[in-house]
């Protein structure tokens, strides 16, 4: 658990950070909260030449409102996301999921952007980003661009970020009014990764589910949008049987892994059960 030698820079602006990344070439690594990267370094599973620490860039932290979006700075700590009034009002699903990340120490060090850019399919937040149609704002040597969440997660631990690009902020379309949300996480100990997680946001009007957004954690090498479930719920009656029926479509398009914490068939079973529970909780059914 002794990391190899690594150079370290701590720029004060995104432009400087991009410059440092470009200069260092492909062996550079961006350091956000460090909650995944530092264990990897200590286990000597990676040997970056330079760490570019984003921790001193003030502009990357905090949450603001911009028209129909809530904009979360990539370096906003999980603990600040959970407590943010804008997030709680317009992106309750994000607050619900972030509150389940690891433990209080990790939540006070780890960042929203770091968790997304790490793109671990067992992480809780990528599924939320996908479910909420978030947009990733990245800055690189070629300037700024926006990547939809649906295109951001490319494969296991792989994103659409180009070399030299930094995830700066995440724009989340506001869900206002009749939306309510719940993240249902299934893990064995409080600090453990999700075996499966289901992020659900539901807009309910009287006895009807008008619209639903459902994202799945750890059901593929990337987060999965459960479109089949959403389609089955759109306009459906808000009752237990209907939700249970819709939840059976959770496994569509998934490719769950088999590993030490669960075999694929068990994960598929869990996805159905947890989708039913997440949607029911969000829609106040049962």
């Amino acid at each position: 658990m002794i990391p190899a030698r690594v150079e370290y820079v701590a720029p004060h602006s995104v432009t400087e950070a991009v410059g440092a990344l470009v200069e260092a070439g492909e062996d550079a690594k961006v350091l956000a909260g460090g909650q995944s990267l530092l264990p990897v370094l200590r286990l000597r599973m990676a040997y970056p030449s330079v760490l570019v620490d984003l921790g001193r860039i003030d502009g990357m932290r905090g949450v603001r409102e911009e028209g129909s979006s809530v904009v979360v700075g990539a370096m906003t700590r999980h603990s600040d996301v959970i407590d943010d009034p804008l997030v709680r009002r317009y992106a309750a699903l994000l607050a619900s999921a972030t509150a389940t990340v690891a433990d209080p120490q990790v939540r006070h060090r780890g960042t929203f952007g770091g968790a997304l850019a790490h793109a671990d399919p067992a992480g809780d937040l990528p599924a939320v980003a996908v479910a909420l149609d978030a947009e990733m704002v990245a800055e690189g040597p070629g300037g700024r661009r926006t990547i939809p969440a649906s295109e951001f997660f490319v494969d296991y631990l792989q994103t659409a970020l180009e070399p030299g690009e930094i995830l700066c902020e995440v724009r989340i379309p506001k869900l206002d009014g009749e939306w309510s949300a719940h993240y249902e996480k299934f893990n064995r100990t409080a600090q453990a990764w999700a075996i499966v997680g289901v992020a659900a946001a539901v807009r309910r009007s009287n006895g009807t589910i008008v619209e639903a957004r459902v994202g799945l954690t750890n059901m593929s090498s990337t987060p999965v949008r459960a479109r089949g479930v959403e389609a089955a719920l759109a306009g459906a009656s808000a009752d237990a049987a209907t939700v249970a029926d819709a939840a059976t479509r959770a496994v569509e398009g998934t490719n769950p892994p088999s590993d030490l914490s669960g075999q694929a068939d068990y994960r598929s079973h869990l996805a159905t059960v947890l989708t039913r529970r997440a949607v029911s909780r969000a829609a106040h059914i049962g």
Binding site: P39, L43, D103, T189, A190, Q191, A192, W193, L260, S261
Partner: peptide
């Protein structure tokens, strides 16, 4: 050994 770190070897905490 497949459970070579605390990420894979699950120790319960007070929360569990």
């Amino acid at each position: 050994l497949l459970t070579g770190t605390m990420a894979d070897y699950l120790l319960p905490s007070a929360a569990d």
